[in-house]
């Protein structure tokens, strides 16, 4: 293989990688925010709210991300939702991730000791204050490992955005491969690159996890 293709297509690949990271971060942040909203609504909503949200969770978790993207990007315009590839991709990632994040938050909230919440009520905190000062800080810390884990899974989902022509790293690799007939080399390099990337972020994730939960580790 001629390595000069990487210098020629380097800037494109780099731009693609940057977009991959942006999609991943925004997808994680928006997805987690929506998931948090769903988890809180499920906790405090009435029976019908809980039922509607549970149906939403099952619908999204039961269908492939690719089909959801096609529905959004190609089906959306038929009901007046016309989006460019990137916004469609980001919205897709947000929707796709939200039920998984919601389940993570829900189980984290369940793990908050009821005594803490009762204590909050006993000293006269409002429900909002209990959510803000007890449920979220305690719950988020215990949700952290699962959150990091799922956000790493999301990095791998971002390559699917290339299919609806979002110019992220996979799309750019495909472009390079098609222009230079280096399909195997291109995709294999991308595979190695992704492997390294996922390894790095999971290490960083573990470090972050240790740092944030260090108050929970008993000193010896």
């Amino acid at each position: 293989m001629d390595l000069s293709i990487f210098t020629e297509y380097g800037p494109r690949l780099l731009a693609g990688f940057r977009l991959t990271i942006i999609c991943w971060l925004l997808g994680t942040v928006f997805g987690a925010a929506l998931g948090l909203l769903i988890a809180v609504a499920q906790r405090y909503g009435g029976r019908s709210v809980r039922w509607a949200l549970q149906t939403y969770i099952e619908l999204i978790r039961g269908t492939p991300f690719l089909v959801q993207l096609f529905l959004l990007y190609y089906g959306g315009p038929m009901i007046g939702l016309r989006l460019d590839p990137l916004p469609a991709g980001l919205l897709g990632l947000t929707i796709y991730g939200s039920p998984y994040f919601a389940e993570i938050f829900r189980s984290a909230f369940r793990a908050v000791p009821p005594g803490l919440i009762e204590a909050g009520r006993a000293i006269g905190m409002t429900e909002l204050a209990i959510v803000r000062r007890i449920l979220l800080p305690v719950g988020l810390v215990s949700a952290l490992p699962a959150l990091i884990n799922f956000s790493i899974i999301l990095t791998k989902e971002t390559v699917i955005l290339s299919i609806i022509t979002v110019p992220e790293i996979m799309y750019q690799t495909q472009y390079m491969a098609t222009m230079t007939f280096t399909f195997l080399e291109g995709y294999f390099t991308l595979a190695l690159f992704f492997w390294a990337f996922v390894e790095v972020i999971s290490r960083l994730g573990r470090r972050l996890e240790r740092r944030i939960t260090r108050h929970l580790i008993e000193r010896t």
Binding site: K156, E157, V159, I160, S162, I163, M170, F183, L184, Y187, F188, L190, A191, F194, W195, F197, V198, E199
Partner: peptide, 11 residues
């Protein structure tokens, strides 16, 4: 587990 399935499929 580190490489997206789509990339592995094409490889």
């Amino acid at each position: 587990r580190g490489v997206p399935m789509l990339v592995q499929l094409l490889v």
